[in-house]
Design a binder for these strands. Structure first.
Length: 641
RNA sequence: GCCGACGUAGCUCAGUGGUAGAGCAACUGAUUCGUAAUCAGUAGGUCCCCGGUUCAAGCCCGGGCGUCGGCUCCA
């Protein structure tokens, strides 16, 4: 007999060697046994067919658990690979993991999959699902596994097996459904029908092990859901996300444009420029209030700076090099980041410990020569500006500076309605500095996070080679995550730039540098805001806050007076003077997602009033202009510190 | 950069070898209207660029540029 402990603490005795599935059916319930996808035995993922050989804790995962969805998508990857090999004999398999929203499988073959191929594959894959073939796990020796895949001509599988054997594996596992076998760690669900429904999404090129020097593979992306309804809901949500695409809305709302002569660099239309400068001014005001000073440094630097910073060696292919007309050499570069120039600026003066912390904020334009194929809308550009800052402080000031930064970041994200999660990344294997230094650095960051009572995820080994960091991932209104804010400790730069301050002891000391940003880049932050708000910005961000619409032309004079008063108070108001019907003008203000449409007819002129309508259709009824101004003061002013 | 798809009016798109089209936007005129689209007319195009095939190319072929999806998720 074995004793099985359930998550609620219940203990059950069962015959030794009983399968997980039979145990669940006999000792818990047939319903759960039917719904189960896989299990954890003593915390280890196993299939339901696995026998229970000794006392163990048991946890069952059903289609309600996200973990089970992940397993079922891995199942789906196998089924798709099976379908591909049936339809296209000679195609070799490589790997096929489940990923965030689905799965992919990489194949080796001489030509890409066409959309028609995908249709056929999807159809056959779903037929295999319907056949309800059980997934069968088998343990084999390395020699047997190699022999099996060599006989099939699966060169990539053989390579993977050899690698894993070299790492010390002695028992390998195969998973079979029907006649199709894959070398796989598992776990898998009980049978193909558990997968539900498979949908293929796209095909693309990929490289063996992600390296372009290796064989070119053909990747198929797909997803799977336990039921059709869930798939339909997911498809709908994707359509919703596509409607919010900042590239689409950027055009529709006339915010920014691109031209082939400047790939990866935006032209900001008047409305986009307004949005951009509102954000710049907002950040200026808040950093100033947070004890920062704003500085500007050159955009173009001699390579000497990059040699000193280390960029010339490590980052050169991402920099735009500029020819010096006198030397005729590419001796200059547009700056790809601000830090080196900030360090130079710090070093131009002698600093006392009394000056620290010194916080330099910069919104200068940066250029990075991103690979042509990597450019995408405003999220991946070649020219951009960061809400960048570097804090120079003593080591004992790190914790309080981090706390101060988080307080600012907290305030900023709150103003935009964004929530966030925190990650602390610690020392990577490749690093500089002593362990003692890292202990102190990581300790300082932890102290700050704990003082703030911020829950955080620890990511060991993910820090930069020059210091640990804290990252802030915000989630938007449709649940997507974006890594925006960051604060990184840097012990290297002060050495490279020989930065010092004079301490109380009248001796020179090394300051520590903190790199930090909240928006990340203005360009990417704007893209995120557009998608977060679906283009319907809150009034304080909206490029046009009020459009004045008259019922008839005879109110035009008064309409302009209203606009002039609002503009005079610093609000962004316009009159739609085109000879269109009132209804048409209102419709257009809605399409442009203007927060307030101010309707003016004879009644409003008589009363010195306006009739505002909010974006979305709420009629606020006729009100005196003074009352509108009070409303705008509340909603349409940039939140100040 | 590599793989694939795409590039037609300001925008969204139709047009697969035989005289370049629609809707919206723009412009002109009429309409002056009370909360999501008044009516009529006009104008707008090196069909991304360069070269080739053909009697004939937006369409077929080659090269370039750009955009988009991938190229990190690891049995």
């Amino acid at each position: 007999m074995v004793v099985v402990t359930l998550p609620n603490g219940d203990k059950k005795e069962a015959p030794k060697g009983i399968s997980v599935h039979s145990f669940v059916k006999d000792f818990i319930g047939a319903g759960l046994a039917k719904a189960a996808v896989f299990a954890k035995v003593n915390g280890q993922d196993v299939d339901l067919a696995r026998p229970l050989e000794q006392d163990a804790s048991l946890q069952i995962f059903t289609s309600k658990n996200p973990e089970a969805q992940e397993v079922a998508r891995h199942d789906a990857a196998h089924v798709v690979a099976d379908a591909v090999q049936r339809l296209f004999p000679g195609t070799q398999v490589t790997i096929g993991p489940s990923i965030e929203e689905g799965f992919y499988y990489d194949f080796f073959r001489d030509r890409p999959f066409t959309p028609e191929d995908l249709e056929k594959i999807e159809k056959l894959a779903n037929e295999i699902v319907a056949q309800d073939l059980p997934f069968v796990r088998e343990e084999v020796s390395p020699a047997a596994a190699i022999a099996l895949f060599e006989a099939k001509g699966e060169k990539f599988k053989v390579e993977i097996i050899n690698d894993i054997v070299a790492k010390g594996a002695t028992t390998l596992t195969l998973y079979k459904h029907g006649d199709w076998v894959d070398f796989c760690l598992g776990p898998h669900g009980p049978s193909t029908s558990k997968i539900g429904v498979i949908k293929l999404l796209s095909s693309s090129g990929a490289y063996w092990r992600g390296d372009h020097r290796n064989a070119a593979l053909q990747r198929i992306y797909g997803t799977a859901f336990f039921d059709k309804k869930a798939l339909e809901a997911w498809v709908k949500q994707r359509e919703e996300a596509a409607k919010r695409d900042h590239r689409k809305l950027g055009k529709e709302l006339d915010l920014f444009h691109f031209h082939p002569f400047a790939p990866g660099s935006a032209f900001w239309a008047p409305k986009g420029t307004t949005l951009y400068t509102v954000l710049q001014d907002y950040m200026r005001a808040h950093t100033r209030a947070g004890g920062y000073v704003e500085i500007k440094t050159p955009l173009l630097f001699n390579k000497g700076l990059w040699e000193q910073s280390g960029h010339w060696g490590k980052y050169k292919e991402n920099m735009f090099l500029v020819q010096d007309s006198e030397s005729a050499e590419l001796d200059f570069s547009l700056k790809p980041m601000n830090c080196p120039s900030h360090h130079l600026f710090y070093g131009m003066k002698k600093h006392s410990y009394r000056d620290l912390p010194l916080r330099f904020h910069t919104q200068d334009v940066l250029h990075r020569n991103e690979a042509a194929g990597a450019l995408s809308g405003l999220t991946r550009v070649r020219q951009f500006a960061q809400d960048d800052a570097h804090i120079y402080c003593r080591e004992d000031q790190i914790s309080s500076e981090v706390e101060r930064f988080v307080a600012l970041l907290n305030r900023v994200y709150k103003d935009f309605g964004l929530s966030y999660a925190v990650k602390l990344s610690t020392r990577p294997p490749q690093r500089i500095g002593t362990d003692e230094l890292w202990d102190r650095a990581e300790g300082a960051l932890k102290t700050a996070l704990e003082a703030l009572k911020l829950p955080y995820e620890l990511v060991p080994g993910d820090g930069a080679f020059y210091g640990p960091k804290i990252d802030f991932a915000v989630s938007d209104s449709i649940g997507r995550n974006w890594q925006l804010g960051t604060i990184q400790l840097d012990y290297v730069a002060p050495e490279r730039f020989d930065l010092t301050y004079i301490g109380e002891d009248n001796k020179e000391h090394r300051p520590v540098v903190l790199h930090r940003a909240i928006f990340g880049s203005f360009e990417r932050f704007i893209a995120i805001l557009i998608e977060h708000f679906a283009g319907a910005f809150p009034a304080w961000l909206a490029p046009v806050q009020c459009v004045v619409v008259t019922v008839a032309d005879r109110q035009a004079e008064y309409a302009k007076q209203v606009r002039d008063r609002l503009v005079g108070l610093g609000f962004r108001a316009e009159v739609d003077e085109r000879g269109l019907s009132m209804q048409k003008k209102i419709a257009e203000a809605q399409v442009q997602k203007v927060p307030f449409t101010l309707v003016i007819g004879d009644r409003e002129v008589e009363q010195g009033a306006v009739a505002p309508r909010r974006y979305g259709g709420e009629d606020l009824k006729t009100m005196p202009v003074d009352q509108l101004v009070a409303l705008l003061e509340k909603e349409a002013r940039t939140p100040m510190p």
